Each structure stands twice: as C-alpha cells, then as structure tokens.
Simulated scan of single mutants.
Amino acid sequence: MIATLNKSKTALTINRQEFKLALAKVGTGIDKQIASFKKAKQSYDSSEIANEIISEANIFEAIIQGFNEAEETNLKLTDITNLELAQGWIDEFLEKYSNE
C-alpha cells in the first residue's frame, strides 16, 4: 500500500518503498515517451516532460482522494505526516531527467 492511515484515521504516512515503485512506473512511461521522440528525431526537453507528467498526476492529491473515498475520511494534504520527505523523493526522481 502506498500510504498507511493511522488508527485514528487523521493522518497518512507515505510508504517509501511503494511510493518509489510507483515513481519508477511513471519513469518507465516517461522513458518510452522520450524514446519515441528520439526515434522520430523530434526535439524534446526531458526535464519538462517529467515535470509536466508529475504535475498532472497530482500524486498526493490522488492518494488523499483514494483514502477519503475508501476509508470515509476527510483528510487533506497537510495530514500527510511525511509530505516534505515524499516531496524530496519526487525531487530526486525529477533530477534524473534534468541531467539528460
């Protein structure tokens, strides 16, 4: 599970391993998109592609929404206990594409 809901159903903790696995799957999609641009000899900005996909995915909002629907909670982004740390994992992920 990508996050753990505390017993009082008032906070979530993002699970590092599951979250990074999910990011890796997103990365596979980005890599395929970049490969198709290369094959077609089209210009691209790998950093822009990765940032756009991550922004559109609204990962944290999707996690919150999923738990709110499944657990009948009313959690908000501020209820993610390790949000700053998880954002760091996204930043590390995006850094990979800024170096290409």
Rank of each mutant, 00 (worst) to 15 (best):
L21Y: 09
V26E: 03
N15F: 06
K76D: 13
N6E: 07
I49A: 04
L75E: 02
S47V: 03
D45R: 01
E52W: 00
E72Y: 10
A24K: 15
A86L: 07
L77Y: 01
I34D: 02
L21W: 03
D45K: 03
L83A: 06
F37N: 08
L23K: 09
N82Y: 11
S36R: 15
S98I: 04
E18T: 07
K38T: 09
T28M: 07
S43K: 14
K38C: 05
A86M: 04
E72W: 03
S43H: 14
N6M: 10
Q33M: 13
E84D: 13
S47K: 11
K32R: 15
F93M: 08
F67A: 07
Q42M: 14
L12G: 09
L12P: 01
I64H: 03
I59H: 03
N6D: 15
I49K: 02
S55T: 09
F37M: 08
E52F: 04
E61M: 10
A57C: 10
E84A: 00
F93N: 07
K9P: 04
K41H: 08
A35T: 11
S47E: 13
G29V: 08
L5E: 01
F19A: 03
T13L: 04
L23C: 12
Q87Y: 05
K20C: 13
I34F: 01
A22G: 09
V26L: 12
E100S: 06
F37D: 09
A86S: 14
N6T: 05
N74L: 13
E95Y: 13
